[in-house]
């Protein structure tokens, strides 16, 4: 039978949970092999960062939605961590194939990469649950505050750094549903249209570097 919007949203939630039931909220054996192959083993940093961001997430979630929902926040965060490790493993496998490299020490010791990847995984979880609120007309729902870019604010993450993981995240997670990919696309647009141009954005440094590097090259003649 045709699905009501609420049923469709509930299905998304069940599907997300179903996808992740067999995924642990700890690094898998394949991930541990990648960690061990690093010049500097990032395992402890990764574990302590997840713990620390988990406390931030639960606290901010409870502040936004209500203290009695702290447990709910923890559950959402755990789902996010499961998805984070799942996508990280998939990204590393595809990078290994693309670059014929097994030592990802620089990437796996890059705190911004991990925070962005976990933020993206949590954004997918939040949007999946928020989808159920919006579909039943719950615009007034306290979860409205948790919409993007809430996750960037609580993790003090630059939008441009979050933007860098989106495409790889979508490529690495083929089970992402169409409406979720669309949602991430909208996040990307929002970043490019406004969030990435905030005064402290790393985008400006990148533009400055490329301009300096570009000085050696001839600028393209203007199109007639």
């Amino acid at each position: 039978p045709p699905q009501t919007p609420i049923r469709a949203a509930m299905n998304s939630i069940q599907q997300l949970r179903g996808e992740l039931t067999s995924v642990s909220d700890k690094p898998s054996s394949s991930l541990i092999v990648y960690f061990k192959n690093c010049t500097v083993d990032p395992s402890d940093e990764i574990t302590s960062r997840v713990e620390q961001l988990g406390q931030v997430f639960s606290q901010k979630f409870a502040q936004a939605v209500g203290q009695r929902c702290e447990g709910l926040g923890k559950k959402r965060f755990t789902l996010g961590v499961q998805l984070y490790y799942k996508v990280m493993e998939s990204i590393l496998k595809s990078e290994e194939k693309r670059l014929s490299v097994q030592n990802f020490s620089k990437l796996l010791n890059n705190a911004t990469f991990h925070t962005s990847l976990l933020a993206c995984a949590l954004e997918v979880v939040m949007a999946t649950y928020f989808g159920s609120c919006v579909k039943n007309g719950g615009d007034e729902s306290p979860e409205t505050d948790l919409r993007f870019p809430w996750i960037l604010d609580i993790f003090h993450l630059h939008a441009f750094d979050f933007y860098k993981v989106i495409e790889s995240f979508i490529k690495a997670e083929p089970t992402l549903k169409h409406d979720m990919i669309e949602h991430l696309g909208r996040c990307e647009q929002k970043i490019m249209e406004s969030l990435a141009w905030k005064t402290d954005s790393p985008l400006f440094e990148l533009l400055r570097q490329s301009r300096e590097e570009g000085l050696g090259e001839q600028a393209e003649p203007p199109a007639t």
């Binding site: 990204i91 595809s94 990078e95 693309r98 670059l99 990802f104 620089k106 990437l107 890059n110 911004t112 990469f113 860098k164 993981v165 495409e167 790889s168 979508i170 490529k171 992402l176 169409h178 990919i181 669309e182 991430l184 696309g185």
Partner: peptide, 21 residues
């Protein structure tokens, strides 16, 4: 996927985006 516009070139990936290539 159909509606997402992939922009990375063949030789680009997350390692390059985070200057870890």
């Amino acid at each position: 996927s159909r509606d997402y516009h992939f922009g990375l070139e063949e030789h680009e990936g997350i390692s390059e985006l985070f200057d870890c290539d």
